[in-house]
Design a protein around this nucleic acid. Structure first.
Length: 296
DNA sequence: GTCCAGGTCATCG
DNA sequence: CGATGACATGGA
């Protein structure tokens, strides 16, 4: 038996735009898409909470098990709000896009797209390591293997929903198993380092969010061997929606800036930094929309 | 076979 | 410091 709860959506929100981003053709294993529905499971303590998100006239609707206590229902709702970045007024961002000619098309083409996040910091950091220096098709393939070997799963709506592995499960990962599954030694060590930072050094989303300034947050993440500027900023952008967290060095970002004739030389970091000054406060959103533009 | 992909680290001068 | 090479591996 299931129950449905409503989630109010803000102005300038388009579920289909968000669905397109979630379904760019990669082999995603952390949620399942079906028609205009998204099935996913998240952890609450030691349990997995499965749910389905869809939209109706008045906003999003989450379907979940009907025997959940109120705090778990709230937990799922909050997760969905965060995942789709629903608590943000993006009108100023659109005003900005309108005012910059080279970015006009982003607003017109993807109106209502939200910065789809990764609310779990551990997942975001591991994903950034997996994605380092390899193409996205391969990265999703590696993620699926990691998740199927070390993640939990639950049956829901006749589907198997996986959750990303916990630090506890990855700190004792078997190097030979991952080597046999196409992980490089570097990635394996880096994943262990992140798990260790969470379990032994008290790193978690709350402790990072408690740090007031961006530079110190970034520094804290970069202390971990395997997390560079790109990875730290990627995680801060996807988990905390931190505006200044620009993933410098990102080849996709560079490509998109080049496509938009914002830079002429892909190695011209000064020009890239200069450009981002013009979208201050909305850097992460701009990056996200530029990435989106790569998918057509 | 070659080049590249949502980088990072160690090692130079 | 900033530059350069090593690493690692599948996909196009």
């Amino acid at each position: 038996m299931t129950t449905k709860v409503q989630v109010q959506t803000p102005a300038l929100f388009d579920f289909d735009q968000c669905l397109f981003f979630l379904d760019r053709g990669y082999d995603e294993c952390l949620f399942q898409l079906e028609e205009r529905k998204v099935h996913r499971a998240i952890t609450y303590g030691d349990e997995l909470l499965p749910f389905t998100v869809t939209d109706e006239e008045n906003g999003l609707v989450i379907e979940m098990s009907n025997d959940l206590p109120d705090d778990q229902v709230k937990f799922v709702k909050d997760y969905v709000r965060e995942w789709f970045d629903l608590d943000r007024d993006i009108e100023p961002f659109y005003d900005l896009l309108t005012s910059i000619e080279s970015l006009n098309d982003l607003k017109n083409a993807y109106e209502g797209l939200r910065l789809i996040g990764i609310p779990d910091l551990f997942e975001a950091m591991c994903w950034s390591i997996i994605g380092q220096q390899i193409n996205l098709t391969f990265a999703f393939k590696l993620k699926r293997k990691l998740v199927e070997i070390y993640g939990k799963s639950i049956q829901w709506n006749s589907q198997t929903l996986y959750h990303f592995p916990t630090p506890e499960s990855l700190i004792k990962l078997d190097e030979d198993v991952l080597r046999a599954n196409q992980f490089s030694r570097g990635k394996i060590q880096y994943l262990k380092n992140v798990a260790s930072a969470f379990l032994e050094n008290g790193l978690d989303k709350r402790s990072i969010a408690a740090i007031p300034d961006f530079e110190s947050r970034q520094k804290k993440l970069i202390e971990i061997k395997g997390i560079g500027v790109w990875s730290a900023n990627y995680a801060l952008m996807k988990t905390l929606h931190q505006p200044e967290a620009i993933p410098f060095g990102d080849t996709g970002l560079t490509q998109a800036l080049f496509n938009h004739k914002i830079i002429e030389d892909r190695k011209d970091e000064a020009a890239i930094k200069q450009f981002f000054k013009s979208v201050k406060g909305w850097e992460a959103y701009t990056v996200f929309y530029l990435w989106r533009s790569l998918a057509g």
